[in-house]
Design a binder for these strands. Sequence first.
RNA 1: AGCGGGAUGGGAUAGCCAGGAGAUUCCGGCGGGCUCAUAACCCGCAGACCGGUGGUUCAAAUCCACCUCCCGCUACCA
Length: 727
Amino acid sequence: MSHDDFPTENPAVVTCGLPYANGDLHIGHLRTYISGDAYARALEKLGQETAFVSGSDMHGTPVAVNAEKRGVSPEEFALEHHEKYAETFPRFNVEFDNYGHTHDETNTELTQSFVRSWVENDHVFEKEIQVAWDPEADTPLPDRYVEGTCPYCGAKARGDECDEGCQRHLEPGEIEDPVSTITGNPAEYRTREHKFLRLSDFQEYLKGFIDRLEGTSNARNQPKEWIEGELQDLCITRDMDWGIDYPGEGKEDLVLYVWVDAPIEYVSSTKQYTERVGADEYDWEEVWKAGAPEADAPEAADDETWDDADTGDIVHVIGRDIIQHHTVFWPSMLRGAGYNEPRAVMASGFVNLDGQAFSTSRNRAVWADDYLDEGLDPDLVRYYLTTTGGFQQDVDFSWEKFQERVNGELVGTLGNFAYRSLLFAARNYDGAPDADTSEEVASRIEDAVADFEEAVNDYSLKQAGDAAVALAGFGNEYIQRNEPWNLTGDDGESRSDSESPSGDEPRGPTRAEQVIYDCVQIAKAVAVLSAPILPGKAQTLWEQLGEEGSVHDANLDACLQSPPGEFGEPDELFDKIEDERVEQLNEKLQERIEAATDDSGEDATEESEDDTMSEDIQPVKEDRISFEDFQDLDIRVGEIEVAEPIEGADDLARLEVDIGTETRQIVAGIKQLHDLDALPGTKVVVVANLEQAELFGVESNGMVLAAGEEADLLTTHEDSVPGTKVR
RNA sequence: AGCGGGAUGGGAUAGCCAGGAGAUUCCGGCGGGCUCAUAACCCGCAGACCGGUGGUUCAAAUCCACCUCCCGCUACCA
């Protein structure tokens, strides 16, 4: 399948996955938005007509539940977050052409029109299903708000999945002893009629679609299992008040499932952009609808049809956790309503913090607000997040690594080159000397531009960013090699006589003038090429060069166009991050984590508040065991000698425990609840004759006893020596 | 369990789709240079049998098969 290279004749739209209006943003979330922004800007650099849109996802159960807890309406609750997001993004230089939300009029109307199209094209059917209900609160309980016992393995499980036990998917009604996680009441099941989108209608279509799809490879490969297997039909309604009403008679009590109205916001947001700037400036229908094959027979549109279709280019930038939504549900939804299909899905990896996943409940995260409050420039984290690894790779964040990249590449290479070149030029020539770009330098800039163009067409922001920094690196080498500081002050002697063969011209540039002119030209190209990733800093450099207007209006051709002649002494573009600063940042992070762990009762977030307390205290079991059975347990005192985290596991720690006769390796689920460094020397109670197990690839030979969800470690009151039997 | 992603000098990463020069870049180490520049920059050196085994090929980090280990997804968490 062949899409034309960017820039294409038709408009493009770049979208970012909708942030859910329930919680704060951290730099993990930011990775997607920064990348989307940088990619949209990069497309514009190529001269591609591009809109960049997103919006807040306002609906769904978590918003409704959390709003109720706070005693406000869901709308008020969600709008508050929406406004916060809308204000935060620009502070990271993420500038949407339109940022809407799913609850506005545009999206409500458009969503309902999508649903009507599906109904008209016979993709929707009705089915009775079992829905969990909280009889006391008289509210339905979506899957995740039910807990109970897994009918297969007996483990504690969520309504939709045996998440801790056998991992089996559970159908509504299957779980035993269902309990509402909202109120703690026993839940019951009621039979309800719901609407389904028949995804199987699109199975053949999707097989073709996935092969045409560009972007990251994970977005193409991950959904294959679904597409080539049997697609479950998608239940598109929920028993709730909060959401967009299902547009049909007799269904007033149903709202649409969030994953119906959420992606449609991409279209709505683009439409709002058109409404604001006018269709001759940017026409949303050209990108979303025009030229798309007819909707009535989805599978009829094959590769060839799409090849010939004169459509716009839709690029979705998302996190890799919602790949299936964008490669299975969403294209089906678009196709069923006669819309265009996405050209590319760029699914980013996650951001880890010092090698471990962010944990919002433990406050182990770098929050967007914290970053800004530190006074750190947004372009620094933009650079880090977009160029540290491949787009679909996970990226590890630590303040040390952040410092290393900033100081090495932005301060040392890019900033230093720009500063030394412009300063030298300003001091000696009051700007760019009179000359033309040398062949060597022009050709090097052309290479950088070609790299950049290739990067955009390969959906590689890293390559785009590297193109700019590598060019600055060349600049440093070039200025060093030519030593213009040893050439100034010379008179006629050092002029490059080869450059001015005839006596007609008053004089050619001196060697120094030539070198400095070249450097200024390189700096200009660096400003243009780095603008998508470093929008603020590129603009500063642009202004230092004496350029008018915005660097974001310049396209790649500007890289080789001559810079204006005059400018004054520049300021340094980037500040070095000192070691003390990194220490401070680490300390603050550490303090926050500890604070969050300490007062977990008071300032606890939604996760712990709900169920932890009730979960720990259960009625005493009726079944008694014999004394002999008890005797079979070898419980003894142990002393922790070594405690270290197990890479990648959320809460597992590897312990070495002295149990008197020997030192055992034991894996315990206590990592996030204890400061592991403080554990060695602690007396614990160990079940020594438990069968061995392997957890996360680490052998566990015994069990350390701890109480409850908080894993409160059992220890001894006096100082029994390791090995002492507990009885 | 199935599926996806990954394993590359001490650390971090690129290259893999389109097989072929001394395997990229950054940090760190060692030695030199420069002084326009933010103790910055430039040059050179050391250091990798590209996770393992087998295959295809004139040629494999790259393609194929099997295996090991890590991370994730499996139908509301970027």
